[in-house]
Amino acid sequence: MLTGRKRSAGRRSGQTAVADRQADDWAELVARVAAHQDADAFTALFEHFAPRVKAFLIKSGAEHTLAEECAQDVMVTVWNKAAQFDAARASVATWVFTIARNRRIDMLRRDRRPEPEQLDWGPSADADQHDALALQQETEKLARAIRALPEKQRIVVERAYLGELTHNEIAEETGLPLGTIKSRIRLALERLRHAMS
C-alpha cells in the first residue's frame, strides 16, 4: 500500500522533508483512531511513521527482519494507546519516538528504564489552541535546528538518540539549540503548575 504521495514523502525525508500533511493533522488522525478506531486514519499514520520507525531501529543496530517486526509492534502500540496521546503535551512524532525507544530497549535487552510518576497534567481541552498547534509544529522547527548544527555536532545528537552513545560520551554541553523551543518548556511548566494548584 506504500504508493503515491506518502511514498514520495518518505524518499524525500533526508533533506527537505516537507511532509504532505501538517503536523497538527497527525494529531487529528491519532484522535480519530482513539475515538472511532478509524482504520483510514491509522493507515495514514502507518504509512508515514512505520518506515521511519523501521529506519530508526535499523540504525540502532537491529537486523531488517527484526526491525520490520518491531516497527509493526510500535504501530500496534500506537493503535492501543491512541487514547492516551495528549496533543497539548507532545507532537505525534515525539510520542511515536518514545514508543519506538521503549521497544528498542526491550528489543536490544538494554537496561530497564523506569518511568517517572504519572502526573495529572490537567485537561488538555483547556490548553490554548494556538499553543497546541505550535507544539505540534515544533518537530519541524527542531529538525531544522539540528540540521543547522555543525556536522560533527549534528552527528553526535543523532547518534545519541540512536542509542550509540553512552552518557559519558554525550558532551556536557550538548550544543542543542533548545532555545528554539524554550517557550515550549515554559508552557509545559505552566500547565503542570496549573494542574497542581
Binding site: R52, S91, A100, P116, E138, T139, V157, Y161, L162
Partner: peptide, 21 residues
C-alpha cells in the same frame, strides 16, 4: 525532559530517513 524527547521525535521523523516496510 519533554523538550529532549521532542528532539528524539525530530530525529526520528526528519533526520534519519525511512526504510520501506
Amino acid at each position: 525532559l519533554g523538550a529532549f524527547e521532542a528532539v528524539g521525535g525530530a530525529v526520528l521523523e526528519r533526520n534519519i530517513g525511512a526504510v520501506p516496510m
